[in-house]
């Protein structure tokens, strides 16, 4: 427990890790938003969820998007992933311009370039863990890379659970299956939406540690939306959103740093300062 009474997740100090995958200016961009606006409704009922957000996600970096409720963090992620359309501006994933893609283009994008991890796990109850993990590949009609599959499975420690149905797995195990499902296709970007929101702290730490390792060791790009400072501290970089705009950014955060920024966000006077 820390001073605030919060459970501190058990994790190796990330500063001790080598920075082999550290972002340099020449690294290609995995995803990017250029002056993205998202407006719901019109006239009186108009709600501006995003106001001109421009943000770049470098390849091989674990980015957390934080912000208070209603700040637009989920909307930004949905727009980045092509799940939602933008009102103005452009979104790119890798070389692909997401803005303006039709359904089949978006389907292809999700198949080849994007992976998802959800708060609710979202596994198919009729499929075994292994089948769930391989689902994106089989939908795309791609052969899994056996060596990579084994690596992923070993990393998430699901070797003994592959034949189980989701109902027979704990929440943490289910989320690890979901992580493995996102990773096994080696997408350009994995979008994780509150991945630890439904997990106890131990399971959450496992999942976050696994996500970070996949970035460090395999160069995976991950964009995670969260409101948990501890979860955010696993990321290489934290972007803060408030009122639909990027208001702050942190590199190599610790939970206390994140918590501190969040407190300031909740107090507009300090933000203005």
């Amino acid at each position: 427990m820390d001073a605030a009474g919060r459970t501190v997740l058990v994790r190796p100090d990330h500063d001790l890790f080598t920075r082999g995958n550290q972002v340099t200016a020449s690294d290609p961009v995995a995803a990017r938003a250029d002056d993205v606006w998202k407006v719901y409704g019109s006239g009186e009922a108009e709600v501006i969820a995003l106001r001109g957000v421009s943000v770049t996600f470098q390849r091989g970096v674990f980015t957390a998007i934080m912000g208070p409720s209603g700040s637009g963090k989920s909307t930004l992620m949905h727009c980045l992933a092509g799940l939602d359309s933008v009102t103005r501006g452009e979104v790119h994933i890798g070389e692909t311009r997401v803005t303006g893609l039709g359904d089949s283009g978006l389907t292809k994008l999700r198949r080849d370039k994007v992976g998802f991890i959800f708060q609710q796990f979202n596994l198919l109850p009729t499929l075994s863990a292994k089948e769930n993990i391989l689902l994106p590949l089989s939908i795309a009609g791609r052969k899994p890379d056996d060596a990579w599959f084994d690596t992923v499975i070993k990393t998430v420690a699901l070797q003994d659970r592959l034949g189980h149905r989701p109902a027979q797995l704990s929440g943490g195990q289910q989320q690890r299956v979901a992580c493995a499902r996102a990773l096994v296709a080696r997408p350009e970007v994995i979008f994780a939406d509150e991945p630890t929101g439904n997990l106890d702290s131990k399971s959450g730490a496992d999942v976050l540690g696994f996500l970070r390792d996949s970035v460090k060791t395999y160069g995976q790009t991950i964009v995670m939306v969260t409101h948990d400072p501890v979860a955010a501290s696993y990321a290489d970089r934290v972007i803060f959103l408030a009122d639909g705009a990027v208001v702050d950014e942190l590199s190599d955060p610790t939970p206390d740093m994140v918590l501190d920024r969040m407190k300031r966000l909740d107090n507009p006077a300090e933000v203005a300062r």
């Binding site: 198949r111 080849d112 992976g115 979202n122 689902l135 939908i139 499902r181």
Partner: peptide
Amino acid sequence: TRELGLIRAVGMSRAQ
């Protein structure tokens, strides 16, 4: 609904 959303999210096309 949720399941269908998921399989669409992981790349299943409308036709599929």
